[in-house]
């Protein structure tokens, strides 16, 4: 098998917040009827997590399930577990109308860490980062590109924010975050 690499091979930047590409992350787009029992069961059996409510993300060590739209979930598992998870999902959803696709290599994932992590995002996205709750996923845009972000684990907005965007715009996304986290450009609004 070819040697899989992430978009920016773990690029890092240290400013008033730390910006880091987290490397390979297994991601599965799962579409179907989110209200059905089969879907809840499939997510449970494949990841051990429960089906997230509207705009929520369920997180556990190394795994997460995020609500993306009324008929779409993003299942995140370790990169090497994607095929195993797909098999589990296919088995649990057999006979129902659904779609489960490996999109790991179609995305780039960043983490912005530090007390002012929220400020970095707030500079780039047209949203109120102060209102972003723990366990909530917000799909919006970073300057000109679509992106989704959430607080890692039980973190607060002065902690670690995880950002997902398309791989084709990974460099643009990283440069944006880097510029926004540059030393000397602190905002001090959320920190």
């Amino acid at each position: 098998m070819s040697n899989a690499v992430s978009a920016l091979e773990g690029a890092e930047f240290n400013g008033f917040a730390e910006v880091r590409e987290i490397g390979l992350q297994g991601m599965i787009t799962l579409r179907g009827d989110l209200g059905s029992k089969a879907m809840a069961g499939a997510v449970k059996s494949a990841t051990g997590l429960k089906l997230p409510e509207l705009r929520r993300i369920e997180q556990a060590e190394g795994q997460a399930v995020a609500w993306m739209s009324p008929d779409e979930l993003l299942v995140m598992v370790p990169y090497e577990d994607v095929q195993k998870t797909l098999v589990a999902l296919d088995k649990a959803l057999k006979g129902t109308h659904y779609m489960a696709v490996d999109v790991s290599d179609a995305r780039a994932v960043f983490q912005v860490t530090g007390p002012a992590a929220g400020d970095v995002i707030a500079k780039l996205a047209p949203i109120d980062m102060g209102a972003l709750a723990t366990g909530e996923i917000r799909r919006s845009r970073l300057a000109q590109i679509p992106a989704a972000f959430w607080l890692v684990g039980d973190d607060t907005v002065s902690g670690t924010v995880q950002v997902v965007c398309f791989r084709s715009v990974a460099q643009y996304g990283f440069d944006l975050l880097k510029t926004a986290a540059e030393n000397g450009t602190e905002v001090g609004f959320l920190a």
Binding site: L54, R55, S69, P70, P126, I127, R138, R139, S140, R141
Partner: peptide, 12 residues
């Protein structure tokens, strides 16, 4: 009306 987000028009 689908995801309940209140956002400004550049997100749409």
């Amino acid at each position: 009306p689908y995801c309940g987000v209140t956002a400004e028009e550049t997100e749409f």
